[in-house]
Design a protein around this nucleic acid. Structure first.
Length: 518
RNA sequence: CGCGGGGUGGAGCAGCCUGGUAGCUCGCAAGGCUCAUAACCUUGAGGUCGUGGGUUCAAAUCCCACCCCCGCACCCA
């Protein structure tokens, strides 16, 4: 059985999750569900990044005493977990960087790197703002006063530990060039390659405890903790059994997909592969950096206060509509604009008019013409015009799988959804062209049976196909078709087959799936 | 200044890597149908693909120059 290991980033817990977090999770979840349905043994890992200065400060701000950071993060993490539940994110493991097993692995890896002389002690120059207790790098201040409070900064020199990024630069460049799919999309790969044209500086991976103590202690220098990113990235292997459950680790590593936002690409495409290389491990196969959601042309940010809260959208329009919108509206990789107008347009146009209405009108006809029972599968009348139309619909529907597979494999969610919608549109057109109401008037039962049957089969295929994107609606259609088993047990291969529904079974027409927003 | 992204019918976008009748959604106009969530189906109007050069039999697509818009303190997918 083929395996697939997919990860989301670990979300930083210094604030509540917003639409961007939701976006990444939904993308991961959709890929995961799709491949699971395609027969892969998948493993989707997500979690939270809980150490570092920002969290330490957030804890203080929230009224926790120094040293009680763990209590603070314990209080925040449930917000993330709840949102993932509301968004129907189905992960296999939730890792927290404060998990003792993770911290232990981080320390072991630090030891390995130290023993290879990839970690060394050096000096770090920077600027310190005493009132803010904040440390700034030369790059951040460029000779100006404290960016936070505007007061004068003090130049300090600090002993710290460094990781030899520079040693692996040439290796990394050639690895990126040799592996087409290592960094996606291509324009991001080019960005990284052009960044790598300049020599890498070694990475400072420690913080003296006297300045910042909320982190994983360096095993060879108890007065220091490690830099958050160094700690966080390791989750991808610590949560997968590295140095712990070697059998599991061997099976799933290297990761197939690291799905991330474009802001954290350098950490993933530069630091992380080099860290792995130093530890003697293979790099991940693909790192995909997606774009940002903007609001009215502006970047979403806490300071601007224009954050879109996914919970509000879910309450108003439902989880599936949000999942659909985010994955359909924008080419994955590029930035997109989030607006309620665009959302409603998608909702009414695609979900209510096309999909919801198709389900509704089909099931109404089953009720009306066949008292809610699935009609017999009739062999088409040779060379009739109806046969031609029916074959067109059947071909379109049963060939959908191949398109979905290639598009989802290349992270083209929007393209995958359009392919599904082509089938939906085809079905709507089929109704117009085959005119079941005329068959009913003319008492042409055979043709009527055939038409309705074909529509129901198409709905069955659509239902499976949308499952990775909209699990709840998918299940609802499934139920309305009278299928008792859960949709999650369905296999993608069933979308290539026809006439699987059992004749005579009762369908269960329900309320419209997506009532139009007026 | 530099780096990155973008400029395609009224709006929002795809196509550009791998040149060869300019496509999608929404909106608009006309028509059709009645199973349906005033939904669905058909047809139509509307673009010299930012500007100027170049390569080519042929350029939205490749090359050069230029103009305009957005992002690059913190937060952050």
């Amino acid at each position: 059985m083929k395996k697939l290991y997919i990860t989301s980033p670990l979300y930083y817990v210094n604030a509540s999750p917003h639409i961007g977090h939701a976006y990444t999770q939904i993308a991961c979840d959709t890929i995961n569900r799709f491949f699971k349905m395609a027969g892969f043994q998948t493993y989707f890992m997500t979690g939270t990044d809980e150490h570092g200065e920002k969290v330490e400060k957030a804890a203080v701000k929230a009224g926790y005493e120094k040293g009680r950071e763990k209590d603070f993060v314990d209080s925040v993490v449930p917000h993330f977990k709840e949102l993932w539940k509301d968004l129907n994110i189905k992960f296999d493991f939730f890792i927290r960087t404060t998990d003792p097993s993770h911290e232990k692995t981080v320390q072991k890896i630090l030891e390995i790197m130290k023993s290879k002389d990839d970690i060394y002690k050096g000096h770090y120059n920077g600027w310190f703002c005493t009132p803010c207790e904040t440390f700034w790098t030369e790059l951040q201040v460029k000779g100006k006063p404290c960016p936070d409070c505007g007061r004068r900064l003090e130049k300090i020199e600090e002993a710290n530990y460094f990781f030899r990024l520079s040693k692996y630069q040439d290796w990394l460049i050639s690895h990126i060039k040799k592996n087409e799919d290592f960094i996606k999309p291509d324009y991001r790969k080019n960005e990284i390659l052009s960044f790598l044209k300049n020599p890498l500086e070694d990475l400072c991976i420690s913080r003296p405890k006297e300045r910042m103590a909320w982190g994983v202690e360096l095993p060879f220098a108890p007065n220091f903790v490690t830099y958050v990113w160094f700690d966080a990235l390791i989750n991808y292997i610590s949560g997968m059994g590295f140095l712990d459950d070697e059998k599991k680790f061997k099976k799933f590593w290297p990761a197939d997909f690291h799905i991330i936002g474009k802001d954290i690409l350098r950490h993933h495409a530069i630091y992380w592969p080099i860290m792995l290389r130093s530890a003697g491990l293979a790099p991940p196969k693909t790192i995909f950096a997606h774009g940002w959601w903007t609001v009215k042309g502006e970047k979403m940010s806490k300071s601007k206060g224009n954050i879109v809260d996914p919970r509000t959208v879910i309450k108003l329009y439902g989880t599936d509509a949000l999942r659909y919108f985010l994955l359909r509206e924008v080419t994955f990789g590029l930035d997109g604009t989030f607006s309620e107008e665009a959302f409603i347009l998608r909702f009414n146009g695609d979900l209510a008019n096309d999909l919801g209405n198709l389900v509704n009108r089909t099931l109404t006809m089953v009720d009306k013409y066949f008292s809610g029972k699935i009609p017999e599968a009739r062999a088409g009348i040779k060379n009739s015009s109806l046969e031609g139309l029916s074959r067109g619909l059947k071909d379109k529907a049963t060939h959908l799988r191949k398109t979905l597979e290639s598009r989802i494999s290349s992270f083209d969610f929007s393209g995958a959804l359009s392919a599904i919608w082509e089938v939906i549109n085809k079905a709507n057109k089929y109704i117009e062209e085959s005119k079941p109401w005329e068959c009913s008037r003319n008492k042409n039962t055979k043709n009527l049976e055939s038409i309705i049957r074909n529509l129901l089969e198409t709905l069955r295929i659509i239902s499976i196909s949308i499952y990775p994107f909209m699990p709840v609606s998918s299940q609802k259609i499934w139920q309305q078709l009278g299928i008792k088993d859960g949709i999650e047990g369905a296999s993608l291969t069933e979308t290539e087959k026809w006439n699987l529904l059992k004749a005579g079974h009762k369908t269960c027409k329900d309320k419209p799936l997506f009532p139009r927003i007026v």
